[in-house]
């Protein structure tokens, strides 16, 4: 991996990112509208390199690893591309076209989710700073 020293680092950053999003009412409200259980699967970089976001039934939960239930949608990519994506350095449409991102499950969910993820990404730099990982911030 180019940006991470092990498989735990990206999950720590991304779970923290969603935890930070949860204190923002606007972001929380937007994510709840997606109403899906989503698995972010980076397991090509390690068996535990994944996390999930559950925004079903008016709640918003996030956790490392795989969810206990079958996800409505799975987005599979590398942890490095995930870092680029959260840093707004990866065009997600192009990444899907070139199979860097593989999406399984609800297309409707994906379209509901995409605009919300862009808003979540806006606080990614702050999260990296909070973790003391300024060196990971992409210029």
């Amino acid at each position: 991996m180019e940006y991470w020293k092990d498989e735990n680092e990206p999950i720590k950053a991304f779970v923290k990112l969603f935890e930070a999003a949860m204190v923002d009412d606007e972001l929380t409200g937007g994510l709840k509208k997606v109403n899906q259980l989503i698995l972010f699967d980076y397991t090509e970089n390690g068996p535990n390199c994944s996390f999930w976001v559950d925004c079903r039934n008016g709640e918003l939960k996030v956790g490392p690893g795989k969810p206990a239930e079958e996800p409505d949608m799975t987005m599979s990519l590398s942890a490095d591309d995930a870092h680029r994506s959260w840093s707004n350095k990866l065009n997600p449409v192009m990444a899907i076209t070139r199979k860097k991102i593989r999406v399984k499950g609800s297309a409707t969910g994906l379209l509901k989710l995409a605009p919300k993820l862009k808003k979540v990404a806006a606080i990614y730099v702050t999260v990296l700073k909070d973790l003391g990982w300024e060196d990971k911030i992409l210029a």
């Binding site: 899907i96 999406v103 297309a107 409707t108 994906l110 379209l111 509901k112 995409a114 605009p115 862009k118 808003k119």
Partner: peptide, 21 residues
């Protein structure tokens, strides 16, 4: 294709919200 799936499901306005963003 994913794009076809999306348009079959919700038509050509499927990504209008993304377009607004």
């Amino acid at each position: 294709a994913l794009a076809s799936d999306v348009m079959r499901e919700n038509g050509t306005a499927a990504n209008l919200e993304g377009g607004v963003v």
